[in-house]
Design a protein around this nucleic acid. Structure first.
Length: 426
RNA sequence: GGAGGGGUCGCAUAGUGGUCUAGUGCGGUAGUCUUGAAAACUACUGUACCGCAAGGUACCGCGAGUUCGAAUCUCGCCCCCUCCGCCA
């Protein structure tokens, strides 16, 4: 959520930004409600003051009169406040000056590319065919047992996921590795390791709301009987860890890495990405979340992206870094950077990583703040980013490392975790 | 799932209708003392909003209610703890 004062002082800018983010808000109405709300708030304070005086004097008659008066004003305030808040929640975050402006993903800009796309002396297959042939992806049985967009990941492919997880955890928990990544990226921020977390996969809708991400029953699995919903990303339960808390400046940055299953209903994607495991109702993911000082947050995002690149480079998977444009970026994002990994079977770069810089947009609603050394208090800045999205990274490995005979080589860095160097048909 | 206990200004506690503008201890900050440190002593030490300021208002898990007046009484909800049951 933005600050109403900021909106008031930068009305035209915010209006333009909102438009570029493909949203529409009546800012005149919003500011009018804001003023009205403030006026009623002041009125309530004044009545309360008189009420406190009457109370001290034990003046029952005046107290009784003020009580009636207050009821009406509080009701008016409640009405205005409700309208005001619901409008405020629709205002998207502002975006960084280097964000490309555009209405959809076609305006996204590839900033850089890394790696050589592999050359095959045969026609590379898509991952679902490779997986089916090797007996490590079974969508048919999952379809019967659980429905579409569910899969059994079996045998060596399951092992490969755990190898990936172990490798990725070793990266984000190793101080020397992170220092090297920071130095190579030319960044000047405090380096600390990520605390590994296995977070809850259920969240209260009220808390999910405070992450300032749109929560709709079309996208998420809801359990109204229990007032719970399934998370769509570990970010959803990592972000609120410090809600309603004030963190000391000396304790920042705080960095966590959460491994969980992510659940998505994928309504409205019928017929899209139906092959294999590219778009599933559930997939596992290791996700980073950072809480930093405002002046460090942009570099923090660069740091998170550098970690993502380090991992893909270690796996020797070709990728491109993409600046996501205004119309395609997330509602709470100040700057969004995606990594797209080359998938030879599909002959396309596909999104495998995302890094969201949300500034203080989420922390305002979560009420997560930092107390500076000088005693002042302000919202922290938050960043979240993928370390490894298991399903899509498994796809990238299957397609990039496939051999003519249908077997798949294991990326070198994962071999020690796997105890073998290729996946063969049993 | 059953029974009971509890959520108070960082932490621990006091507070059962008006003197609570929430007491005390610990922790923290500053000072006195000291060669330095410790101890002791003194002062300060929650958050948000309005206001140039003085100051004001709100917040005792959350939300409603009773009352002239609620941390305190009533109702609903959330969370934590103990015991029993069940269970990876």
């Amino acid at each position: 959520m933005l600050d109403i004062k900021f909106i008031k002082e930068n009305k035209d800018l915010v209006a333009q930004i909102t438009k570029n983010k493909n949203r529409e808000i009546d800012f005149d109405e919003l500011l009018k409600l804001g003023d009205e709300r403030k006026r009623l708030r002041t009125e309530i304070d004044e009545i309360n003051k008189k009420r406190n005086e009457a109370q001290r004097e034990r003046n029952v008659a005046v107290g009784s009169q003020l009580k009636t008066e207050l009821e009406q004003v509080e009701k008016d305030f409640g009405d205005v406040d409700k309208k005001f808040v619901s409008l405020m929640l629709k205002v998207p975050n502002i975006y960084s000056p280097d964000t490309p402006v555009g209405s959809d993903e076609s305006a996204n800009v590839a900033i850089r590319q890394w790696g050589e796309k592999p050359n095959f002396d045969f026609k590379p297959k898509e991952h679902d065919e490779i997986g089916r042939n090797l007996g490590i992806i079974d969508s048919e049985t999952a379809g019967e047992v659980s429905g579409s967009r569910f899969t059994y990941i079996k045998g060596d492919l399951a092992m490969l996921q755990f190898a990936l997880l172990q490798f990725a955890l070793n990266v984000v928990t190793n101080k020397e590795t992170l220092e090297k990544i920071t130095k190579d990226a030319g960044l000047n921020i405090p380096v600390s390791t990520f605390t590994p977390i296995i977070p809850p996969v259920f969240i209260k809708p009220a808390v999910q709301n405070r992450m300032a991400r749109f929560m709709t029953p079309e996208d998420h699995y809801m359990f109204p009987n229990d007032d719970l919903m399934l998370i769509g990303s570990a970010e959803h339960t990592l972000g609120p860890i410090y809600m309603d808390k004030i963190i000391e400046e000396k304790d920042l940055p705080i960095r966590v890495a959460g491994y969980s299953t992510a659940f998505r209903r994928e309504a409205g994607t019928y017929g899209k990405d139906t092959k294999g495991i590219i778009r599933q109702h559930q997939f596992d993911k290791l996700e980073m979340e950072s809480f930093t000082l405002p002046e460090h947050s942009l570099q923090e995002q660069d740091f998170l992206v550098a970690i993502q690149e380090y991992i893909l480079q270690s796996l020797k998977l070709p990728y491109q870094v993409v600046a996501v444009c205004t119309g395609d970026m997330g509602f709470p994002d100040y700057r969004q950077i995606d990594l797209e990994t080359w998938m030879p079977g599909q002959e396309k770069y596909r999104e495998t990583h995302s890094a969201d810089h949300t500034g203080n947009f989420q922390s305002r609603r979560l009420n997560t703040r930092v107390k500076r050394a000088d005693g002042s208090i302000e919202p922290v800045h938050m960043n979240d980013a993928t370390v490894v999205a298991m399903g899509r990274t498994l796809i990238a490995i299957l397609e990039n490392y496939q051999q003519a005979d249908g077997s798949v080589m294991i990326p070198e860095v994962l071999r020690s975790y796997m105890g073998k160097d290729e996946i063969n048909r049993k």
